[in-house]
């Protein structure tokens, strides 16, 4: 299992007049297989997980994945960390299903035929083999999200970060996506508003107002979050 280390991390963003603090003094060492981050909209949980592959840069403090500093070893970290976004339409780049998965492999597999074969294997694993040649826009939202996951898994990452991957999906599609994510052998760092899903993870962080206010076993962390959010 991979290790994600955040050491006294603060993130700021510039505004028209000065800057705003998005995340303040976060320290955590994540080694569990499934780590979940819960919190209100705008609390900073997306910022927290975006640190892990350098989508967001820390103003101070360090972020390491398996000992590699995101700030200095960005490309190496991104090869280890796959990222699944909320909106699948934003991360599907190529016109057809097979081509999108093949794009993920462009850097790892130079031979085109081998790339295609690998991509087909990944699609078969995720249950989209029969849709390989269809347009990505002909897929349902759930299938698009599964395809996004396939594109991530094709790169054989050791960590998969998923930022509210089921928020836009209906019940059935959300189930399919969440089962896929929970059954992966990779370490999962998940952001979700689905508290039932959160309870199935191994460790939970609660983010409130840019701070981690609770870092505990999911049952207790979720209880803490519910109480503080509704009080």
């Amino acid at each position: 299992m991979a290790t994600i280390e955040l050491d006294d991390v603060t993130v700021t963003a510039p505004t028209a007049d000065g800057e705003v603090v998005l995340l303040r003094d976060v320290t955590a060492r994540l080694t569990e297989r499934r780590v979940v981050v819960v919190g209100a909209n705008g609390s900073g949980k997306s910022t927290l997980v975006r640190l892990v592959n350098g989508l967001v840069a820390a103003a101070s403090g360090t972020v390491r994945v398996d000992g590699l500093d995101v700030a200095t070893d960005g490309p190496a970290v991104r090869r280890r960390v796959g990222f699944v976004f909320t909106q699948p339409a934003a991360q599907l780049v190529m016109p057809t299903v097979l081509e999108d998965v093949a794009l993920s492999l462009r850097r790892h597999v130079k031979d085109k035929r081998e790339r295609e074969a690998r991509a087909r294997a990944v699609l078969a694993e995720i249950g989209l083999a029969d849709r390989a040649d269809t347009s990505v826009h002909a897929l349902s939202g759930g299938q698009q999200q599964l395809l996004a996951i396939a594109g991530v898994l094709a790169c054989e990452p050791t960590v998969v970060v998923a930022d509210e991957p089921t928020t836009l999906l209906d019940l059935r599609n959300a189930r399919a996506v969440q089962e896929r994510l929970l059954s992966m052998e990779q370490q999962l760092l998940l952001v979700t508003h689905d508290l039932d899903l959160a309870r199935r993870c191994d460790r939970a962080l609660v983010v409130e107002d840019g701070r981690v206010t609770c870092d505990d076993d999911p049952e207790r962390a979720v209880a803490h979050y519910v109480e503080s959010a509704l009080s």
Partner: peptide
């Protein structure tokens, strides 16, 4: 959002 997704897939990194 697309730009972030491209960066996350390592497509902005040099070979």
């Amino acid at each position: 959002a697309v730009g972030d997704a491209l960066a996350a897939r390592g497509l902005g990194d040099p070979d």
